[in-house]
C-alpha cells in the first residue's frame, strides 16, 4: 500500500464547479494568428477576411481548440514565474483552473495526460469568451514511478451570447 492522496479534503472538491470566468481579452486577430502559427494550421478561415466572408463561416473564426488556450493572465494578476522559485512549494496550493479550489495533493510535478474535445461551434473574432470548470473526478493509480494522482477537469466554453463553443475533458497527472 502506498500513500493515500485521496483524502477527505480531496474528495470534498470532486464535483466542485466554478462560476463563469471571462477571458480578459475577446478573440483577437493577432492572438488567433499566433495560435494557428503555433499549431501550423494555414486555413484561410482564420485570417483571410474576404475569403471568410464568402465562406460558410460568414466571417473570420478561431481554430476549434482556441478557447481552451485563450484564458491568458490578466495584466494585474500575480506572475506565475514569481512563485516557481519558491523552495517551499509542495503542490498543495496549486490552482488548476480559475474559480476552482486547489487540490490538496503534495505532489510537485504535473503532466498533461490529454484532452477530449467536443466541438459545438467556432469562436468568432471579436467574441468574448467564458469558461465554467468542474472537477469531474480525482483518483490515484500506482505506476512504475510511484503513485500518480489523476485530476479530471471538465471545462465548458461559451461566447457572450451564451452559445456553447467547446467542451473539454482534460486529465492532469500529478506525480
Amino acid at each position: 500500500m502506498g500513500v493515500n492522496y485521496i483524502t477527505d479534503e480531496v474528495k470534498a472538491v470532486i464535483g466542485a464547479e466554478s462560476e463563469p470566468v471571462e477571458a480578459f481579452h475577446p478573440v483577437e486577430p493577432s492572438e488567433v494568428r499566433r495560435f494557428h502559427h503555433a499549431t501550423m494550421d494555414p486555413a484561410r478561415r482564420y485570417w483571410d477576411a474576404e475569403w471568410a466572408k464568402q465562406s460558410r463561416y460568414g466571417g473570420l473564426v478561431a481554430p476549434p481548440a482556441f478557447p481552451a488556450h485563450a484564458f491568458r493572465r490578466p495584466p494585474a494578476a500575480p506572475d506565475p514565474l514569481d512563485q516557481m522559485g519558491d523552495p517551499d512549494f509542495d503542490g498543495r496550493n496549486r490552482r488548476m483552473r480559475p474559480g476552482l479550489p486547489p487540490v490538496e495533493v503534495p505532489l510537485v510535478r504535473l503532466l498533461n495526460g490529454g484532452y477530449d474535445y467536443e466541438f459545438f461551434r467556432y469562436a468568432r473574432h471579436g467574441e468574448r469568451l467564458f469558461v465554467k470548470s468542474r472537477f469531474k473526478d480525482i483518483y490515484q493509480r500506482d505506476g512504475k514511478s510511484g503513485t500518480m494522482v489523476f485530476v479530471v477537469i471538465e471545462d465548458l466554453y461559451s461566447n457572450d451570447r451564451g452559445e456553447p463553443l467547446l467542451k473539454t475533458t482534460n486529465t492532469l497527472i500529478l506525480r
Binding site: Y115, D116, F119
Partner: peptide, 12 residues
C-alpha cells in the same frame, strides 16, 4: 472543408 469536427480526443 465541408466537414464539421464533432469530437477529438488524445492521450499523451
Amino acid at each position: 472543408r465541408h466537414a464539421r469536427l464533432l469530437r477529438f480526443a488524445d492521450r499523451n
